[in-house]
């Protein structure tokens, strides 16, 4: 028999569970240098930020009257800002926020 340290365990044949709504083993929010900031007043729900985000980090809220940003996974590519049709989105330096990413504390 072999002793396998917990942190090195691999499931049999490397077959892993599928995620459901997010993959919490790969949190990417701390990659950001900038974050997109929304002015809900200006948003007309054109959906561009939702469809164009490679990381599915913009979704409609339950009432479907506002878009909601996912800070946990947004990598800060800013495609959403570039594609926003109403200038509701703008970019802001991540370190200007109190909850801003402290870069490289936990790389990924």
């Amino acid at each position: 028999m072999f002793i396998i340290p917990k942190e090195k365990e691999v499931p049999l044949g490397c077959i892993t569970p599928a995620p459901v709504t997010e993959q919490t083993m790969m949190i990417t929010g701390n990659w950001r240098e900038y974050r997109p900031v929304i002015d809900q007043e200006k948003c007309n729900l054109c959906m561009n930020c939702i469809v164009y985000c490679p990381d599915a980090c913009w979704q409609l809220n339950e009432a479907e009257d506002e878009v909601v940003w996912n800070a946990k996974y947004c990598k800060g590519c800013l495609i959403c800002v570039n594609e926003c049709t109403t200038e509701a989105l703008s970019k802001a330096y991540e370190l200007d926020f109190e909850d801003g990413v402290v870069r490289l504390e936990k790389p990924f």
């Binding site: 072999f2 090195k8 365990e9 691999v10 490397c14 077959i15 569970p17």
Partner: peptide, 22 residues
């Protein structure tokens, strides 16, 4: 649904080998 064969870290490669050896 499951995922077959995502990548592993190099330090887990031995474990994959060990599985086959076992």
């Amino acid at each position: 649904p499951v995922s077959h064969g995502p990548q592993i870290r190099p330090d887990q490669g031995t474990i994959m080998d060990l599985q086959r050896a076992q």
